[in-house]
């Protein structure tokens, strides 16, 4: 009897400890987002005021709406969001396409040099992008099809081309990870599935398209989401290769402080910056709220693990 009681007590106390811990950590994660959100609706006076924690003194909707409208105008928010949406969608769809194909080849075919090739995929992940961006920039600035054209070549900086070319060949930012995920998934599919498709007369491409791909839905979603989020947040590649081209949302956020006169107060700058950051992550937050269930479940089910 006492043993049962003891075990139950232990279980109860663990669940109390666990919930305290998890609630605390969740608070730590959500708090910065929350502070950003509340700072955006404050006035300069509220920031000085130690008695104001989250809710500003003046909660008039018209003032807040006016403030937001001003920041949205200064960021060119709607146009640049659309730019970023189109850009990130196209590039991440290309990455999804190429990484799935490469991962399928690595996961399901036995050919000589497969291990080496897989090692190279991991290698691309390890090399810091800073090391190859400068030569890559020069290659795209004077793009001559690697020596085939003699007269100077094309200037591809500021166009979609650098991104399309690297995305379609699985060498864009973090693409090694996506290939890795796809390969692990396809490797785990039963061989009998493939063989029965061959016996029924399906070719190799048809087997991939009609047998393997439909089962890979969740993993494709994970790759797409990762790729989209990184593309959206990225300023390193875009500021290098999109120089003077399409104006994307990260650029708008970066240039936002410069839109105001230098003499405005630090408090005012903080409010403006926070508003900008919140507007910047808002589309991602919306996307995440809708897709998080598939995202988390699918990672668990198949996942990154071999």
């Amino acid at each position: 009897m006492s043993a049962v009681l003891k075990r139950r007590l232990a279980g109860l106390s663990w669940s109390v400890v666990r919930s305290v811990l998890l609630i605390g950590l969740c608070f730590l994660i959500v708090n910065p987002v929350f502070i950003k959100l509340t700072t955006t609706i404050m006035t300069e006076k509220d920031i000085f005021d130690p008695t104001v924690q989250w809710v500003p003194r003046d909660l008039s909707l018209t003032r807040i709406a006016k403030h937001y409208a001003e920041v949205i105008r200064n960021m060119g928010y709607f146009r640049n969001t659309l730019n970023s949406l189109v850009f990130s969608s196209i590039i991440s769809l290309c990455q999804l396409f190429s990484c799935t194909i490469i991962g399928y080849g690595l996961g399901r075919y036995q050919f000589r040099g497969r291990g080496l090739l897989f090692g190279l995929v991991v290698f691309t992940l390890v090399v810091p992008p800073q090391m190859i961006t400068i030569p890559l920039f020069l290659n795209f600035r004077y793009f001559d099809f690697f020596g085939l054209l003699k007269d100077g070549g094309f200037d591809l900086i500021g166009t979609y081309w650098p991104f399309l070319l690297t995305a379609l060949t699985g060498t864009g930012g973090k693409n090694g990870l996506f290939i890795f995920i796809a390969r692990q998934h396809f490797r785990g599919m039963p061989k009998a599935l493939e063989e029965s498709a061959y016996i029924d007369g399906a070719g190799q491409f048809r087997t991939f398209w009609q047998i393997m791909l439909p089962g890979a839905g969740p993993i494709l979603l994970v790759i797409f989401l990762f790729s989209f989020v990184w593309q959206w947040n990225d300023i390193f590649y875009t500021s290098t290769f999109m120089r003077g081209g399409l104006y994307l949302l990260p650029f708008a956020l970066r240039d936002l402080p410069g839109k105001y006169h230098w003499s405005v107060s630090t408090e005012f700058r903080t409010i403006v910056n926070n508003t900008g950051m919140f507007l910047f992550i808002l589309p991602l937050l919306i996307l995440y709220v809708f897709l998080q269930r598939y995202f988390i479940e699918s990672i668990e089910r198949t996942g990154i693990v071999g």
Binding site: V33, F226, V229, W232, N233, D234, I235, F236, P250, L253, R254, M277, F280, I281, L284, L285, Y288
Partner: peptide, 8 residues
């Protein structure tokens, strides 16, 4: 994962 952006 979402909130780690270079610009931020």
């Amino acid at each position: 994962v979402i909130l780690t952006a270079g610009v931020l």
